[in-house]
Amino acid sequence: MAVASLTEIELALKNTLGKKGMEEEDLKKLAEYVASFFGYAGSVIDNRLASEDRDIFYMLEEEGLLTTMEEEVHLKKRKNVEDSLLDVEDRSSHQISEYGIS
């Protein structure tokens, strides 16, 4: 997944939330806030978000700006040296959608 630039995030927010009346300054702050989670990555693991951050991400998902992807991860856990168990973890992550960027 391609990484969106700060300018692309601002444009996407302007095309959605800006049309609903959000002020330009607030759009820029929100774009910086969202970009700070992604850095140079294309996704953010959901369980690393605080509940307030998660609420904002779900609001942006409703606007079509983020998508949620779920994957199943197999983690190897050892009870002792001779015996190991596999544990399955469902992990959600959020990705920036290309909707609204153009």
Rank of each mutant, 00 (worst) to 15 (best):
A50G: 05
I56S: 02
D46K: 05
M22R: 01
M22G: 01
Y40N: 15
D46Y: 03
D53T: 07
E25Y: 14
F37V: 03
G42S: 14
I56W: 00
E23V: 11
I45V: 15
Y58N: 04
S36H: 10
E52F: 08
M59G: 11
V34C: 00
Y40V: 13
F38S: 04
S51Y: 08
K29P: 04
E52C: 08
K29I: 06
N47A: 06
E32T: 09
L30D: 01
K20M: 15
E52G: 12
D26N: 11
K28N: 15
F37H: 05
K29S: 07
E25G: 10
K20R: 12
S43K: 07
E32V: 09
G42R: 05
F57D: 06
K28L: 14
Y33F: 07
D46F: 02
K20H: 07
G21H: 14
R48S: 05
G39T: 10
R48H: 12
R48T: 12
M59Q: 10
S51I: 05
E24A: 10
G42N: 13
F38V: 03
F37Q: 06
S36V: 12
V44I: 11
A50R: 12
K20Y: 14
E52V: 01
A31Y: 00
A35C: 10
L30F: 04
I45S: 12
N47C: 10
G39F: 04
M59L: 14
K28V: 15
Y58E: 11
M59A: 14
L27H: 08
Y33P: 00
R54W: 01
D46L: 07
D26F: 01
M22V: 12
D53S: 15
N47S: 12
S43H: 08
G21M: 03
F38D: 02
D46N: 03
L30Q: 12
E32W: 08
D26Q: 06
Y33L: 02
A35P: 00
A35E: 05
A35R: 01
F38R: 06
D46W: 04
V34F: 00
N47H: 15
L27R: 15
D53E: 15
K20T: 11
E23F: 15
F38I: 11
A41S: 05
V44T: 01
L49Y: 14
A50I: 13
E32M: 08
A41W: 05
F37R: 08
K20V: 12
Y58F: 09
S51P: 07
S43C: 09
K29M: 04
